Simulated scan of single mutants.
Amino acid sequence: MSQVTVHDATLRDGQHAVQHQLDVPQLRAYAVAASAAGVPVVEVGHGNGLGASSRQIGYARLDDTTMLETVRLALAAGTSRLGVFVVPGWGTGADIRRAADCGADVVRIAAHCTEVNVTRRHLGIVRELGLEAQAVLLMSHMTSAKRLAEECRRATEYGAQAVGIMDSAGHYLPVDVSERIEAIVGAVDVPVIFHGHNNLSMAVANSLAAVEAGASVIDACARGFGAGAGNTSLEVLVAVLHRSGHETGIDLPALLRAADVAHDRLMAGPPVIDSVTLASGLAGVFSGFKPRVLTASRAAGVDPLDVFAELGRRQVVAGQEDLIDEVVRSLKAAS
């Protein structure tokens, strides 16, 4: 069977679940535990990546440099590499250079699924700095397998050393993942990435389908820590991969201890699939909108399920949070 690199996004994507408020002791405790388990890459930062701390999408408790330096030091005794996430428009070239100075090893540049052209300059900077450059496509259910493959191929021309897709809304079924990953694998000669969310309780199944279709880098978070229904559960993923005969290089008992640290130190409780997160997955809307949708819906007396359905119809994506209030007002006026 294949070798799978597990990319741990607990300290970055998990931040969405706590409004980006993880502190230094929390970052340190989990990073030490993940490193002890031999997790290949530990990603850290504001939930939306470098430079994203803002009024629009939420201020992080800590600045980027503090987060990176804390986790870099915590990983020093092991072999885990330090990863960061960058969305052009929030993260800049200066942010990438500061991350490099803090010891980042792997830099993910993310773009909407049909807009990989915006990653070109950022990927070039990452390569110039001698770091590993990766490109991922967000909200990937919003276009075809053929288009995703073409976007990923273009990313490799820009310098990406690994490419892939994020199921940002938790919308996929395994057959959807297989079709897209197979298309991407056929179009590029670099490792292929898959990042799942659990709105339809498919994150682990989708991740396994991705591996069987040829993906070799899979993202996950301890206890599924993340927005809404959460991400692929890291410890479950690794257990399933091992049972399926795939190698990860991770010590599973130690990883279970790391998951316990995440449960006890990072979150009030693991993410759950509720009516709202299920509705957001079906609608193909990023479930990180959940808190704002609930607040606005309750204030206006509007059904949040209707709000997610309308957001999906409008194909709203992360960064367009202001449209939530507009949708709520329009539904209120129509009622």
Rank of each mutant, 00 (worst) to 15 (best):
123 L>V: 01
143 T>W: 04
138 L>F: 14
125 I>E: 07
120 R>Y: 05
159 G>H: 11
132 E>L: 10
144 S>M: 04
131 L>Q: 05
117 N>R: 13
144 S>W: 00
115 E>G: 02
156 T>V: 06
159 G>N: 03
131 L>W: 04
134 Q>K: 07
122 H>N: 12
117 N>A: 15
137 L>P: 01
155 A>W: 07
160 A>S: 00
114 T>K: 09
158 Y>T: 06
133 A>M: 02
137 L>W: 09
142 M>F: 08
130 G>T: 06
151 E>W: 04
145 A>I: 12
133 A>W: 08
156 T>F: 12
152 C>M: 13
158 Y>L: 00
150 E>C: 01
144 S>A: 02
158 Y>S: 04
138 L>G: 08
129 L>S: 09
143 T>V: 12
153 R>K: 13
130 G>L: 06
137 L>Q: 04
145 A>G: 08
139 M>N: 13
117 N>M: 07
155 A>K: 09
119 T>P: 11
136 V>G: 14
135 A>D: 00
141 H>N: 03
137 L>M: 12
121 R>T: 01
123 L>N: 03
159 G>K: 13
138 L>S: 00
114 T>V: 14
157 E>R: 09
116 V>M: 14
144 S>Y: 05
157 E>H: 10
142 M>H: 10
153 R>H: 13
132 E>A: 02
130 G>Y: 14
146 K>P: 02
129 L>Y: 07
123 L>R: 06
125 I>Y: 00
161 Q>E: 14
129 L>T: 01
135 A>T: 02
134 Q>C: 09
114 T>E: 11
159 G>I: 05
125 I>A: 03
133 A>S: 10
153 R>W: 15
118 V>T: 05
144 S>I: 11
152 C>V: 02
157 E>A: 07
128 E>C: 07
118 V>K: 06
152 C>H: 10
141 H>K: 06
133 A>F: 09
139 M>K: 06
128 E>R: 10
160 A>K: 14
132 E>K: 11
129 L>V: 01
124 G>N: 05
122 H>E: 08
114 T>L: 12
135 A>F: 15
153 R>V: 03
144 S>L: 03
128 E>D: 14
150 E>A: 13
157 E>F: 07
141 H>M: 08
131 L>D: 01
146 K>S: 11
138 L>C: 02
159 G>D: 07
120 R>T: 00
161 Q>I: 01
129 L>E: 10
148 L>R: 05
155 A>N: 04
125 I>S: 07
122 H>A: 15
120 R>D: 07
151 E>G: 11
127 R>F: 06
140 S>Q: 09
130 G>H: 12
139 M>V: 15
118 V>H: 05
136 V>K: 08
114 T>A: 13
126 V>T: 03
121 R>F: 02
125 I>Q: 03
131 L>P: 03
153 R>C: 04
159 G>S: 06
126 V>G: 09
143 T>A: 03
157 E>I: 05
155 A>D: 04
131 L>R: 08
120 R>G: 06
150 E>Y: 07
136 V>H: 15
132 E>Y: 12
119 T>M: 15
139 M>Y: 15
160 A>W: 14
141 H>Q: 13
145 A>S: 13
153 R>E: 10
131 L>K: 04
